[in-house]
């Protein structure tokens, strides 16, 4: 590459690099510094507390809950959103016309405000909503949807799946469109029917797109905040207390900036390790079946 082109490349990349430096790298080091102090950002005095914030975080019931709640969400949300977005993409792919129209339609929930949708869901599930009144009057069922440690995470997972299905289905649809039609034709000549075609051709050839969507979905789980914050506040008990809620409560509600930063650092490490593990598992899975 010529020297001039190299410079031009750096110039074009510089807005993103400066942005990352200001809004990502510097705050990251700032958080790392804070995590070793007991500073609340206001007090003129603070002490270096070493690893105390990290030790306290690991022992804290809120952090322990956040750790397990995130994996609980992962178990519910990831398969739900993968299957849902795959179904959506298959529907969009098989449409004879208006594909773009339907793609945009399914994508719209992604643009909806999490607070607004949570408020709507809270209304739908409230004690005196039409749904609950009907359940009580017709079936004598009084379900405390958001007060149940089993139902509350499930509802939140469904909401987030609804929001992201359209987005992920776009990635999967482009994956489907990249599968050559000849492969299906050859399979048809060999006598392959619908389900066999799906499992033996579509799914393996969709592996790269599925890989991307799975990694995105796993990463997303670690950032869940708005829905549980508005609907349950992390409860009942700690059943929907995600990492972000715990960090928010410590850093912004209790103003323990140092302690909150320590939790954020732990969260980022857990996220990183989890994504690496999931990625490795997917790669092994792909290799085993020769899908790569």
């Amino acid at each position: 590459m010529k020297k001039g082109q190299e410079k031009l490349g750096w110039l074009f990349a510089s807005p993103y690099l400066v942005y990352s430096l200001i809004f990502f790298v510097i705050p990251l080091f700032g958080a790392l510094f804070l995590s070793f102090t007991n500073w609340n950002l206001i007090s003129p005095q603070y002490e270096n507390v070493g690893f105390l914030n990290f030790i306290q975080s690991v022992k804290s019931p809120g952090v322990k809950a956040a750790f397990f709640v995130t994996y609980k969400f992962m178990i519910i949300f990831v398969p739900m959103v993968l299957i849902g977005s795959l179904i959506l993409s298959l529907i969009i792919y098989s449409l004879p016309r208006f594909k773009s129209f339907f793609s945009v339609g399914y994508f719209l929930p992604y643009l909806a405000s999490g607070v607004a949708t949570s408020v709507v869901v809270r209304g739908i599930l409230s004690y005196n909503s039409a749904l609950n009144a009907w359940l009580r009057n017709t079936w004598h069922l009084n379900i405390d949807w958001l007060g149940s440690p089993i139902l509350a995470p499930l509802i939140i997972a469904v909401m987030i799946s609804w929001k992201f299905m359209g987005y992920y289905s776009l990635i999967l649809t482009s994956g489907l469109e990249s599968i050559p039609g000849e492969v299906y034709e050859a399979a048809a000549i060999d006598g392959a029917t619908g389900w066999i075609k799906f499992f033996k051709i579509t799914l393996p050839l969709l592996y790269p797109a599925m890989f991307t969507v799975t990694i995105l979905a796993v990463g997303l789980v670690f950032g869940i905040f708005t829905e549980p914050y508005v609907l349950t506040g992390g409860g009942p008990g700690f059943s929907t207390n995600t990492w972000q809620i715990e960090i928010y409560n410590q850093a912004f509600s209790k103003l323990n900036a140092g302690y909150g930063s320590a939790i954020a650092i732990i969260d980022s490490v857990v996220t990183f390790v989890t994504i690496i593990i999931v990625r490795k598992l997917l790669e092994i899975w792909g290799k085993t079946y020769g899908w790569e």
Binding site: L125, Y127, S129
Partner: peptide, 14 residues
């Protein structure tokens, strides 16, 4: 006690 979220329970007489 009703701990389930309800819309304006006092106002609506719940």
């Amino acid at each position: 006690i009703l701990t389930q979220k309800a819309t304006d329970p006092f106002e609506t007489g719940i």
